[in-house]
Amino acid sequence: MISMSSKASDAIASVFPRVLEEQTFLFADPSDLNFAAGPPREAVCVSITFSGANAGKLEMGISATLGREIARNLLEIEPGEEPSDSAAQDALRELLNVTCGNILTEMAGDKPVFNLSLPQIEPIDAKAWKKLISDPGASIYEVENQPVVLRLIGHDT
């Protein structure tokens, strides 16, 4: 069993920049509340739940614009061509799926078994964005001059 609150930020810091770079060739730099304060245009929240040795949810606040950039890199789309909205959403779901699987191993080791849900994505308004970034457990990054916020909500089972 792992203590979610004490390890979550460290695990996110260890995993998210690596997964982002290896999957998309983009870089994530740690940032702060001030950078993320203004909600990005077309903000979305991507979420995935997990159960097993521990249960909880990983959320990622990000702009759909950055989602398109990530899809462009993942799919090696030529400059000037735009990935579809569904491709951008698919890319964000996959990014969170891989990030979550790797964070859980980082926190719990390679013995416990976790079951992950299918990632969900939904638009969020300025109020929801502010709530997400203001959470003490939120980890804020700068990616391509845009904010990305990750938050792990967990409870021991």
């Binding site: 799926n97 891989v98 979550c100 699987g101 790797n102 859980l104 191993t105 390679d110 013995k111 416990p112 078994v113 976790f114 992950l116």
Partner: peptide, 9 residues
């Protein structure tokens, strides 16, 4: 090919 990191699984 998955995100699975559990050696048990």
């Amino acid at each position: 090919i998955s995100t699975e990191g559990s050696s048990t699984r």
